[in-house]
Amino acid sequence: MNGSPKDRKLTFDQCWELLASSVVGRLALIVNGHPEIFPVNFVLERRTIVFRTAAGTKLWESTKQEPAAFEIDGYEPTTEEAWSVVARGATALIEDPDEQSAADALGLEPWEPGTKSHYVRLSPEALTGRRFKVNAPDVWNTRSYDQRRASFE
């Protein structure tokens, strides 16, 4: 990853730890030749990312033989550091009821109302991440809801 000298690459295990501590990420799929981003809640099951969805674009595009990406990020006010993790790989439907039950046992349940009866697994072929120090906010000019302000207030 190219970046400032303050960027620190995360190890493979650090990336998995951050994924395990998160519940929402963004799934990037190619739709009609261009990228689309879908927020999804997820669980980690056997070193893969699993989410549920209803019939529609996200489901149909997840069944194609196109590469996909998944991204999470966060900010830690106590250390004034942000982090980002990106997984790239293939997606596939989970049709085995035992595998679906394994994901459900980890707390995978839809956040959005409606039936989300389709299970999708993203199997990372690449997993990268970085952690970096963020600029201190100008407390007088920074938006009141900027997460960076928490370390100053």
Score class of each variant (00 low, 15 high):
60 W>N: 14
61 E>L: 05
62 S>C: 07
63 T>H: 04
65 Q>H: 14
68 A>F: 05
72 I>C: 00
73 D>P: 01
74 G>C: 01
76 E>Y: 09
78 T>V: 12
78 T>D: 11
79 T>M: 04
79 T>V: 09
80 E>Y: 12
80 E>N: 15
80 E>I: 13
81 E>H: 06
82 A>S: 07
83 W>F: 10
84 S>L: 03
84 S>V: 03
85 V>G: 01
85 V>R: 02
88 R>P: 07
88 R>I: 10
91 T>Q: 06
93 L>V: 09
93 L>M: 10
94 I>S: 05
96 D>P: 03
96 D>A: 07
97 P>W: 03
98 D>A: 15
98 D>E: 13
99 E>A: 15
100 Q>L: 04
101 S>R: 15
107 G>V: 05
108 L>V: 10
110 P>T: 12
110 P>E: 08
111 W>L: 09
112 E>I: 14
113 P>C: 07
114 G>I: 07
115 T>N: 13
117 S>K: 13
117 S>P: 10
118 H>S: 08
120 V>N: 11
121 R>F: 01
122 L>W: 05
124 P>E: 01
126 A>T: 15
126 A>L: 15
127 L>P: 02
127 L>K: 00
127 L>E: 00
127 L>A: 01
128 T>Y: 04
129 G>S: 01
130 R>K: 14
131 R>K: 12
134 V>C: 11
135 N>E: 13
137 P>S: 03
138 D>F: 04
